[in-house]
C-alpha cells in the first residue's frame, strides 16, 4: 500500500531573527508515512517542531530541504496557484479555532465553500448538512463569540470538512478546551475518520489525546522524531526518555527510587511487575499459578488504562517463596503475560 502522505528527509530552518543570531532548525530531517484513513498523532513539548511540521504538509510554510508527497504528488514543488488548489483538499483546525468574527457560524462554513468554488446555489444546503454533522444545526445564525470553546471547534471542524478533504490537520485542536469538551471534540474527530474515511494528522502535547484516538504516534523532540510506532506499543513499551515522560502522564509510573526502597523494606520478598492487555483474566492466572506452587504474594501497586480502546494493566507484586517455585509458576504463564523482576 502506498502512503497517503509521505514525508521524506524534511527539514525546516528559519533564518536568524536578529542579525548575527543563529538560524533556528525547527524541523530536522523528518521522515514519516501516513497511511490512508489512519489517525497519526504527533506528540512533543512546545518548541519540538510539531506545529511547523504540520504547516509543511499543506505548504503554509515551504520546506528547506526534503520533500512531501500527497497521493504521490510532490507538494513542495508546486506553484502557488497549484498549492492553493492542493490546500482545498486538506482541512485544518486550530488551537484557537480561528473563526471569522465578521461572519456567523453558517457564514464561516460557507466561506470555505466560497474559497473552494462551490456554486452559490449549493452552499446553503451543504452548510446545513455540515452543521448537522457536527451537531450545531441550531447555531447557524449565531456569531462565534456566542459559542463555547467546544462548539467553536466543532464549527472549525465543519469548516475544515466543507470542501470534502481527504486529509485533516489538527494543530493542538483540543489544547484550549476543558477535559470534557476535549472528549466531545475527539469523538467527533473519530467520526470524521471512521464515517468519512478522512486521514487525520493530529498535533498535541497531551498524551491522553493520543491514547484516545491515535492509531500511530510519532514523538518529536528538538525538531526530530525520537520514537514512532503503534500507539499501544509505544504506550506499553516506551523507549526514549521523552516518550517515557509522556507515557507517564497517562500510565501511572511504577514506584521507583526512595519509594521503591521503602516498599521493599515494608514488604520483603522479590518484586515483579505483571503487564497484561485485553485478556482481563491474566492477573488471575498469575495469582493461581503462584498459589499452586505455594508462593505467597502481596499486591503493592497497580493500575489499568485504556489505550486506543485496548486495556493495558500493570501490577507490582511482592512474592515470598522458594525461587524454583516462583520460576515454575511464572514459566506456566509466561507465554502470554509479560513478567519482569524489579531490580
Amino acid at each position: 500500500m502506498t502512503a497517503h502522505i509521505s514525508i521524506r528527509e524534511v527539514s525546516k530552518t528559519y533564518p536568524p531573527a536578529k542579525r548575527g543570531g543563529s538560524a533556528v532548525e525547527a524541523v530536522r530531517s523528518v521522515s514519516v508515512d501516513v497511511a490512508k484513513g489512519e489517525i497519526l498523532g504527533v506528540v512533543g513539548y512546545s518548541g519540538a517542531g510539531k506545529s511547523t511540521l504540520v504547516r509543511l504538509i499543506n505548504a503554509l510554510e515551504p520546506v528547506s530541504s526534503g520533500y512531501i508527497e500527497i497521493d504521490g504528488v510532490d507538494i513542495t514543488s508546486l506553484k502557488s496557484r497549484q498549492q492553493r488548489e492542493m490546500r482545498r483538499g486538506i482541512g485544518m483546525i486550530f488551537q484557537r479555532f480561528n473563526l471569522l468574527r465578521s461572519r456567523t457560524v453558517a457564514g464561516n462554513v460557507s466561506y470555505a465553500l466560497e474559497v473552494a468554488g462551490t456554486p452559490k446555489a449549493q452552499r446553503a444546503a451543504r452548510v446545513k448538512e455540515l452543521l448537522d454533522f457536527v451537531g450545531l444545526g441550531d447555531k447557524a445564525d449565531n456569531h462565534p463569540e456566542q459559542l463555547s470553546g467546544g462548539q467553536q471547534q466543532r464549527v472549525g471542524i465543519a469548516r475544515a470538512l466543507a470542501a470534502e478533504p481527504g486529509i485533516l490537520l489538527a494543530d493542538e485542536a483540543t489544547s484550549a478546551l476543558d477535559p470534557e469538551t476535549t472528549d466531545e471534540v475527539l469523538s467527533l474527530l473519530q467520526r470524521v475518520n471512521r464515517e468519512l474515511g478522512i486521514t487525520i494528522v493530529l498535533i498535541t502535547h497531551e498524551m491522553e489525546v493520543i491514547a484516545k484516538i491515535a492509531d500511530r504516534v510519532v514523538v518529536m523532540e528538538r525538531g526530530g522524531i525520537v520514537e514512532a510506532g503503534e500507539t499501544y506499543d509505544v504506550f506499553t513499551n516506551p523507549q526514549s526518555p521523552v516518550t517515557k515522560r509522556f507515557v507517564a502522564t497517562v500510565v501511572r509510573a511504577l514506584p521507583s527510587g526512595d519509594d521503591l526502597a521503602r516498599l521493599r523494606e515494608a514488604h520483603g520478598g522479590r518484586f515483579f511487575t505483571i503487564e497484561f492487555s485485553d485478556d482481563s483474566a491474566s492477573e488471575a492466572r498469575v495469582f493461581r499459578a503462584l498459589n499452586r506452587e505455594g508462593a505467597e504474594f502481596q499486591l503493592i501497586h497497580g493500575g489499568i488504562d485504556d489505550i486506543r480502546g485496548r486495556i493495558y494493566g500493570r501490577l507490582l507484586i511482592a512474592v515470598h517463596g522458594d525461587d524454583d517455585a516462583i520460576a515454575r509458576a511464572f514459566a506456566a504463564v509466561a507465554k502470554t503475560i509479560r513478567i519482569t523482576e524489579v531490580e
Binding site: R84, R88, F94, N98
Partner: peptide, 11 residues
C-alpha cells in the same frame, strides 16, 4: 490565525 485559516483553505 484567521488569515492563516483562510490560507489553509486555499484562499
Amino acid at each position: 490565525g484567521v488569515i492563516e485559516a483562510a490560507r489553509a483553505m486555499g484562499a
